[in-house]
Design a protein around this nucleic acid. Structure first.
Lengths: 257, 257
DNA sequence: TCCTAATACGTTATAATTACGGAATAAATA
DNA sequence: TATTTATTCCGTAATTATAACGTATTAGGA
């Protein structure tokens, strides 16, 4: 169900749950850089996470999926709830006031408008294949682009804190569950998946030991093909063994200690 | 701030956030059994987790602390947010209907009463020292007691699922962070903390190796005292080294692989 | 043909973990 | 007083996992 923005502003709680939002930290991986998708609303200098309200007929996870799909176009997602944020003042900001919001939307709205109330936000993070994503905003957004994780702009509300918590959760996740299926092409090389892990964890691993351990887990299978990478020895291609991969997602495993 | 129940039922959203609740899984440990504190409302056959609403001037964590304090009397708590639950139908129950609720409270209230709307619940779990707790209900509760984790009664809503998720989160937590400070007496023996870990993880550990490893982490210190346990060799007493313990809470550590 | 930079494969040294033998101890019992 | 029993406590050997590193292979380019 698509809700008209004017209706939403005026009668929000008729369509969505008041005082609850979902915010998504969308991670992308590209050329050995970990990135986050951020958006900037009209008339505001600060950036924020893609977020939205929960429709009365959907689950919180479906709400997060809808938000991510609107920004990335992707719906086959690795999506993970990691933490909820609830402090009475977390969405107060001196720049983004009800008055400014009213002016931008050319409407009258009072100080206690429902959108400026105490909001508890459920945080999700997702990992997406950077190259498949077409960042797209909505009419109320001026920009929607990727930012390197190490070089973020000034953020609205407590969104800096949310990103940090998401990154921490992602890194903890990697120690127990495999990743890569959503981030790498179907066929990939050992150095590619090696770089992926190094980038996300911001650590280096001995490539010889890394490959040995990863193969030992059984989650990847070697193919009888190589990829031509130009002026160097052609590396073998691998694919994920989805049976073992999914089992590791279910039961967990330890790739590093 | 204490809110009168009649006011809450009639004008809830004036005092608390609508559509949001906090539910607490309160774990207790006693005689090698892991227990959960549950309550049963008047006129209902099913049991439920202690839960409550979020006051407009408190954080979600403070709300959870208030709930736990009301049920256990304890305020020095190990309290951990682990997951939020949000499905439109999660708080529909054929037994606990608005009509029954109205009858119990001797009030008129319609089908769409705010308390029976779609609620998103933020789940917290806490570990408490069983012996210090005095389970106490409120006037609308008929019972409030401990249940063994392996032998739970029939539960209201999705509370069975919430308990399972809490236990999973607790067990994952133990692999990375120390526990015991809230659960054991100030001075405890190696066999005592050994049993605690075995009970919570539902696994056995070699007592000789367990002790060696735990001492090696530096989070406990041996005293020059023994505890008289009757007909057997008196075990040495230990205390937590709070500096190392808190550092392990901050940075994490691996006691088991 | 040789050089360079990357992948691929293997071996060894070190560290961590697990398994287990057996002494010490406190109190009840014969 | 000696024996039994259940438990704590200390140490060591065997096994396994991890980390460190050496070197062969291979593609393109100088």
């Amino acid at each position: 169900m698509k809700i008209e923005i004017k209706d939403l502003i005026q009668d929000g709680p008729k369509y969505v749950l008041p005082n609850i939002s979902v915010d998504s930290v969308i991670f992308g991986y590209h050329e050995k850089e970990l990135k986050v998708l951020l958006q900037r609303p009209q008339g505001i200098s600060k950036w924020m996470l893609p977020g939205g309200y929960v429709h009365r007929d959907e689950t919180i996870k479906q709400a997060a999926e809808r938000v991510v799909k609107n920004r990335t176009g992707l719906d086959r997602l690795f999506l993970n709830q990691f933490q909820s944020f609830g402090t009475p003042t977390r969405t107060k900001d001196s720049e983004l006031t009800p008055a400014l919001f009213a002016e931008i939307n050319q409407m009258e709205l009072d100080e206690n408008h429902w959108m400026f109330d105490y909001f508890v936000s459920i945080g999700f993070y997702s990992l997406t294949e950077f190259s498949k994503v077409v960042p797209s905003g909505e009419f109320y957004l001026e920009e929607c682009t990727w930012w390197n994780i190490g070089d973020l702009p000034s953020l609205l509300y407590d969104h800096q804190e949310i990103i940090e918590a998401a990154l921490k959760a992602l890194r903890l996740h990697i120690y127990h569950y495999p990743i890569g299926y959503e981030l790498l092409p179907e066929k990939f090389t050992l150095p590619e998946i090696h770089s992926l892990y190094e980038t996300i964890l911001d650590k280096t691993f001995d490539s010889r030991n890394f490959g040995k351990k990863l193969i030992a887990t059984g989650i990847i299978k070697k193919l009888d093909e190589r990829r031509n990478i130009g002026a160097h020895r052609a590396p073998f291609l691998y694919v994920f063994d989805m049976e073992n991969y999914n089992q590791a997602l279910e039961n967990g495993y330890a790739l590093f200690v």
